[in-house]
Design a protein around this nucleic acid. Structure first.
Length: 817
DNA sequence: GCCCTATTTGTTTTT
DNA sequence: CAAATAGGGC
């Protein structure tokens, strides 16, 4: 029944006797349906769980882990759970700790890249890396590539840096080193050559990109028998979330952890449970391979497949629509969602005359939902295929004074000032990180221009060393300036020895001159605020998230002695599992459980910053309508969902509609969008749409033809002369009577339709400190005013777009009270 | 070395 | 239409 010895270290008797037949009624298993119960209590062995949208996938995954622990089938150290996003990983940890009083830190729960990072830090020598290697994010990678292009005079007409970055990432996802890439033509040869150069540069600088993180740890496992054996023995239970999104390399990585290839046949040791939904695979465009699901079944000789088809989310009109739509895809694993909820409201479909009218219709319906049906605004989402569509909707929502929140955009650790600060910190850890060096060598400006840097780069290349080491070879004034910079960083490194993370960052902010620089710069106020926020982020990283899942920071008893896991458990819950794993005492710094090697708090924080870009800080927490792309909505659910722009060329998108695979992915995307809705679903398309500055008119999406007529209700637009829905007829000049005022008018005067652009504003009513709204940038705070009349300019800080100078004669600014 | 203007180029996105 | 970038001028 159990082909391998899956519960390594556990006596055979502990293996549960049957699937789906738990012995005792455990509170853990309460309220699970049969399918879910079967999945949670699967016996040892590999399994594929096809989890439809809204079928309680995360719950099954976490309950499975808790069940294994509680019944002693596994110890925390024996569990590896891998997800794609930090959000999903966090969610899993949170739910798990709510279920069990177990120290979740012993478990390896995280993203693919997070776990790879952990693996590489623990075994950096075997992986050929320094322990303090830095992680390049996409931005860093691109600038590293641009630097390399310049150095080698690569023709960026023929080989745009972006394309090279894409090429390299692709090769790595396919598991190919430069030597493995086929070179048919001279272009391919050139690219591979460049790939090789890039690899050498990264190795020299001690940095790895995201793809490298995966590939390097894959190779580590593949080529190092003792390490692979160790982890294979250790991780008796491997659980993979969103399996349909794994790429080739990630699957290969999992196989390394799960077992060995013997005579061309894969023999697994541990027990792998893959959870996924082929119908929700929407990332093929970046290398995800749905085919991994069928490969998994074949190569792991999967005996058990469970389909979770019971949907707990949506009414049947919504679900029927989703089912009908997705049935038009070929090559599915086959799955049909069902619900016990009633039909619910029909799916409303609206045909608008223009994108403006469409947005206005959405706003009207949203207001209706909130007012008459008692929907919370944050339970209503507007989904669209591409980000460009959000603008009209934002503006319509704004004009109707409906609070909203847009997802997507710059995230915290991606902000320029934060990246500068991080670059300084990285130089403390690793002076040879040339990407970081280049980023801050002249920021704040210290008279080191492009010319000086060129000389330095030539010197570095000639000597085959890092920019840092080449500084002494640069003569003259340029050399002196460079020397001063390097000396500053070196002094800073000395000064911060022994300081805690907070101290290090604060000292860095001073010594680097960053704070000083932004203080003198007019737009600097909020940047300084962000830098302060970085200190806070570091602080909370150290304390609460506490070296987080990586640390062995144990709760202490009253004598300050670390508690063992079983003591912790017993102290909290008499029914808790007894897990007598010996634990190491809490130490400052991260202790890898296996190697005992420590990583400095700073190094840990830096990888955290690279691996988790942070939230895009929009005004969170408010009861606001949620705007996002369909991609971003995956995994979320809302009471009411609007899907706009359902036109040929847009959704399905023209760039994807040419081949069948592309079209099927678009259809899955639509499927994901539909299944986000719990109670109400609204679909719309428009006869005309502004795109790239041109009005285009596209026929309505073919997806409409694939939905069941019976579940739909077509709404004919109201007959309207120059009515409120006609474009440019005033739909957007009706300013709200509530909290906002048109710029240049006193708040009482809104009712009269103001013109969006106020040419002359003798007393414009703007002053530093008040909040304004801009149709593009959203809400922001006025920092300064300059000039008068037509020349008047205002400096405004927008949370999502940074600080801008806006000419008041041009910018559409509205005062927010 | 910085700032301003002309040109270009427009999916989806996480790590 | 509008953001990002490249190149020219100071």
């Amino acid at each position: 029944m159990f082909p391998q010895d899956p519960f390594s270290g556990a006596p055979e008797a502990l293996v549960p006797p049957h699937a789906g037949a738990p012995s005792a009624a455990s509170p853990l298993l309460a309220n699970l349906n049969d399918e879910q119960l079967a999945a949670v209590t699967l016996p040892a062995g590999h399994a594929l769980i096809l989890a439809g949208a809204g079928s309680g996938k995360t719950r099954v995954l976490t309950t499975r882990i808790a069940w294994l622990l509680q019944n002693g089938y596994a110890t925390p150290g024996g569990i590896l759970a891998v997800t794609f996003t930090n959000k999903a990983a966090k969610e899993m940890v949170a739910r798990l700790s709510a279920m069990l009083p177990v120290n979740v830190r012993g478990m390896w729960i995280g993203t693919f890249h997070g776990l790879c990072n952990r693996l590489l830090r623990a075994h950096h020598k075997a992986a050929g890396l320094s322990q303090s290697f830095q992680i390049l994010d996409t931005q860093d990678q691109l600038s590293a590539i641009k630097r390399l292009c310049k150095q080698h005079n690569v023709d960026d007409e023929r080989f745009p840096p972006k394309q090279l970055a894409y090429f390299i990432a692709n090769c790595k996802e396919e598991g190919m080193r430069p030597g493995d890439v086929p070179t048919h033509d001279s272009d391919a040869r050139k690219k591979v050559e460049f790939y090789q150069l890039y690899e050498e540069q990264c190795q020299r600088e001690g940095v790895v990109d995201f793809g490298e993180l995966m590939l390097r740890s894959y190779e580590l496992l593949r080529d190092n028998d003792p390490i692979r054996e160790h982890y294979q023995r250790r991780f008796a239970h491997i659980l993979v979330d969103e399996f349909q999104d794994t790429n080739k390399l990630q699957y290969a990585w999992l196989k390394q952890l799960a077992g060995n290839e013997v005579n061309g046949r894969f023999e697994a040791r541990g027990s792998v449970i893959a959870v996924g939904d082929d119908d929700q695979s929407i990332y093929a465009f970046r290398g995800a391979r749905v085919g991994n699901m069928t490969d998994f079944v074949r190569e792991f000789d999967v005996q058990r497949q469970i389909k979770l088809e019971q949907n707990y989310r949506s009414y049947s009109n919504i679900l029927d629509s989703a089912n009908a739509l997705i049935s038009h895809n070929s090559r599915r694993l086959g799955k049909n969602l069902r619900t016990t909820q009633g039909a619910g409201e029909p799916v409303r479909v609206y045909e608008a005359s223009s994108d403006l009218a469409e947005a206005q219709w959405m706003v009207d319906e949203i207001k209706q939902l909130v007012k008459s049906d008692g929907f919370e605004r944050k339970e209503i989402a507007v989904l669209y295929r591409s980000n460009a569509q959000s603008r009209v909707i934002e503006s319509a929502l704004f004009n109707a004074s409906v609070p909203y929140r847009v997802y997507g955009g710059l995230r915290f650790f991606e902000r320029a000032e934060i990246k500068h600060a991080l670059a300084y910190l990285r130089l403390l850890e690793n002076p040879h990180d040339d990407t970081s060096f280049s980023r801050v060598v002249n920021f704040p400006p210290r008279g080191i221009g492009a010319r000086s840097i060129e000389v330095l780069q030539d010197a570095a290349r000639a000597a085959g060393c890092s920019l840092h080491d080449a500084v002494s070879a640069v003569p003259g004034k340029a050399g002196a300036n460079l020397g001063a910079f390097v000396a500053m960083v070196d002094v800073l490194r000395e000064q911060t020895q022994g300081l805690n993370l907070r101290g290090i960052i604060e000292q860095m902010l001073q010594s680097s001159g960053l704070v000083e620089h932004f203080r003198t710069e007019k737009e600097g106020a909020d940047r300084i605020e962000n830098l302060q926020e970085l200190v806070n982020a570091a602080e909370s990283f150290v304390t609460q998230e506490g070296f987080g899942r990586d640390a062995v920071a144990l709760p202490l008893d009253e004598h300050g002695t670390p508690l063992t896991q079983s003591a912790v458990s017993q102290g909290i819950d008499p029914n808790a599992p007894v897990l007598d794993e010996p634990l190491k005492p809490a130490v400052p710094g991260i202790v890898d459980i296996d190697t005992g090697e420590t990583l400095s708090p700073l190094a840990a924080f830096l990888s955290h910053a690279a691996l988790e870009a942070g939230d895009n800080q929009a005004q969170a927490g408010q009861d606001a309508v949620q705007l996002m792309t369909v991609h971003a909505s995956k995994g979320l659910e809302f009471d009411g969902v609007f899907i706009g722009g359902l036109e040929e060329g847009l959704f399905p998108h023209e760039n994807s509609a040419s081949d069948r695979d592309g079209l099927e992915e678009e259809r899955r995307l639509m499927y994901v969008a539909i299944t986000r809705a719990r109670k109400r679903l609204y679909l719309s398309h428009s006869q005309t749409r502004m795109l790239h500055g041109q009005t285009r008119s596209n026929p309505k999406s073919r997806f409409f033809d694939e939905l069941p007529e019976g579940a739909l209700k077509w709404i004919t637009p109201k007959q309207q002369g120059f009515g409120s829905y006609a474009p440019n007829s005033g739909a957007f000049s009706a300013y709200p009577s509530s909290a906002r005022g048109q710029f240049g008018f006193k708040s009482e005067t809104f009712a009269s339709p103001p013109v969006p652009v106020q040419k002359t504003a003798p007393s414009h009513g703007l002053r530093a400190g008040i909040n304004v709204f801009h149709t593009k940038f959203g809400e922001g705070k006025v920092l300064a005013i300059e000039g008068t009349g037509d020349d008047a300019r205002a400096q405004v800080n927008f949370p999502r777009h940074g600080t801008k100078w806006l000419a008041l004669s041009v910018a559409k600014l509205t005062v927010v009270e």
